[in-house]
């Protein structure tokens, strides 16, 4: 499986100080300014939406980008 970062255009990604990346959530549109947006974790190939508080794996992130699911349909932190 390729890295989750490859799903996004490099121009729209912002690198965080902890080595992870963030971008605007393609589903709810929350932007990446401050603590908001969709955080991408390249090491685990997962992502997290601040607005909905849901997690997504690689395939789910792809579905999120394509509009197949919305960010509310992601998994909780415990799942």
């Amino acid at each position: 499986m390729v890295n989750i970062l490859s799903l996004f255009d490099g121009d729209v990604l912002i690198e965080k100080s902890d080595g992870n990346f963030k971008t605007t959530c393609p589903s709810c549109g929350e932007d990446s300014v401050g603590y908001g947006g969709l955080v991408l974790f390249p090491e685990t190939n997962t992502s997290y939406c601040h607005a909905s508080g849901k997690w997504f794996d690689y395939k789910e992130t792809f579905a999120l980008i394509k509009g197949v699911i919305s960010c509310n349909e992601g998994r909780e932190a415990s799942q």
Binding site: K59, E60, F62, A63, K66, V68, I69, G74, R75
Partner: peptide
């Protein structure tokens, strides 16, 4: 837990 339903998974796999 499975987030994607069967249909959604099928749709995703068509594009991937």
């Amino acid at each position: 837990k499975k987030v994607l339903t069967k249909d959604q998974e099928k749709e995703v796999m068509e594009k991937m």
